[in-house]
């Protein structure tokens, strides 16, 4: 059973007085990556967390293939600043495999395969917290993939990474997507959005301004905000 499609219906989420998401309605369906763009504070992270099921909407509903309150078994997320467990690189992946209740017999092989995929084979026995930021991001990705998810949420996966690390992450994302895993990622990097997106969702001040296929969005934005964002003028 898959969790797709994920439907957000009129979702509002506030923290204190700040409205993070304001009456957001969105369907996340199987297919090419969905990329959330928008300036900082637009609500990208909150939308990812709501779709992951980590925060409950104050108003509106989130459903996974029509069901509410589905625990994150078929979903995985890489946070913007992932937390490394105080264990070695391979033990971090082993932990994720165990948490996902994947049969123990396949763990060693899966760890080897995932480490090779994210290019961390040689760091297998190093303490994960001693890895560089780029390496930690890749390990978090491997940890998320260890869960064999249907849908993978990535919150600004390349923010503050150098170009080489960024390319490595984007290559992995492409490979993952081609394997049929639905990728939903947020970024404020328009170049990245162009390179990866099948579908673009533009958020501004907690609201969805525009949802469009990637090609159409960049060539003929429909709203004023989208035009200004593409032109680099919409900053807050």
């Amino acid at each position: 059973m898959t969790d797709l499609p994920i439907d957000l219906d009129n979702v509002t989420i506030a923290v204190g007085n700040a409205t993070m998401l304001d009456r957001v309605t969105l369907t996340i369906a199987a297919g090419a990556p969905t990329v959330l763009i928008g300036p900082n504070g637009a609500g990208k992270t909150t939308l990812l967390r709501a779709a992951m099921g980590l925060v409950a909407p104050m108003r509106g509903t989130v459903t996974w293939q029509g069901r509410a309150h589905v625990p994150p078994v078929r979903r995985a997320i890489v946070f913007q600043r992932p937390t490394m467990l105080r264990r070695t690189t391979s033990a971090n992946i082993r932990y994720a495999l165990r948490a996902a209740r994947i049969a123990r017999g396949g763990h060693d092989e899966a760890i080897e395969r995932l480490l090779a995929m994210v290019g961390l084979s040689r760091a297998a026995d190093r303490p994960a917290r001693r890895l560089s930021a780029g390496e930690q991001q890749r390990l978090a990705l491997a940890r998320a993939l260890a869960r064999e998810p249907d849908v993978l949420f990535l919150d600004e996966p390349t923010a503050s990474l150098d170009p080489a690390s960024t390319k490595a992450i984007e290559d992995i994302i492409r490979a993952v997507s081609q394997r049929g895993i639905k990728v939903v990622l947020s970024t404020h990097d328009l170049g990245e959005a162009r390179r990866l997106a099948g579908e673009i969702v533009l958020l501004h001040r907690g609201r969805i301004v525009e949802t469009a296929a990637a090609s159409g969005f960049f060539e003929s934005p429909m709203t004023d905000e989208a035009r200004r964002f593409v032109a680099g003028e919409l900053l807050v």
């Binding site: 980590l54 625990p71 994150p72 995985a76 946070f79 937390t83 932990y95 948490a99 996902a100 869960r147």
Partner: peptide, 15 residues
Amino acid sequence: EYRDELTAMNVPWPG
């Protein structure tokens, strides 16, 4: 520090 990760990994309470 761990709350988000462990929740996202659907780790039960004893775990």
